[in-house]
Computed example of a mutant assay.
Amino acid sequence: MTDQQKINLKVTKDEALVLFEFLARFNQSKHQDIFEDQSEQKILWILEGQLEKKLVEPFRPDYKDIIREARNKIRDEE
């Protein structure tokens, strides 16, 4: 794949953690009815795998605290 075919997305560490947590949970469930094509499901698996390679926090014993803090930072004020 050439560099012209790649798109880089920039997210904060907190955003990456929240997205990873969502994708991991989502990809473990059956959601066949929402996909128009299997490629949509596959890209979610790919994104989860790419995040998993970059993040060390999901493997830490205090991950629940880390993800809670990340969600709190991102969440809109009510």
Rank of each mutant, 00 (worst) to 15 (best):
I46L: 04
R71V: 13
L9M: 12
L19R: 05
E78P: 03
N8W: 11
M1N: 07
D65T: 10
K53F: 08
N72C: 12
V18C: 05
K13R: 10
E48P: 02
D14A: 11
K6D: 08
R60E: 09
V18Y: 05
L47E: 02
N8Y: 10
E40C: 02
E57G: 00
K10H: 09
L23A: 09
D3M: 13
K6L: 11
K64M: 12
N72E: 14
H31D: 06
E57A: 01
I66T: 01
P61N: 08
T2E: 13
K73V: 12
E21M: 08
D3Y: 07
P58W: 13
E21F: 11
R71A: 09
L55Q: 05
E77K: 07
I34H: 00
N27F: 00
L23K: 00
D3L: 09
K53A: 15
D33T: 13
V56W: 15
A24W: 14
E21N: 15
R75C: 09
E21W: 14
F20A: 06
E40H: 03
P61M: 13
E52R: 08
E78F: 08
L17F: 06
F59N: 01
L55E: 10
R71G: 06
L9W: 03
W45A: 15
G49C: 11
S39C: 04
L55S: 04
F20P: 00
D14N: 06
Q41H: 05
I66R: 02
F20G: 01
L44P: 05
L51R: 03
D65A: 10
N72M: 14
K73F: 09
F35N: 03
L9H: 06
S39I: 11
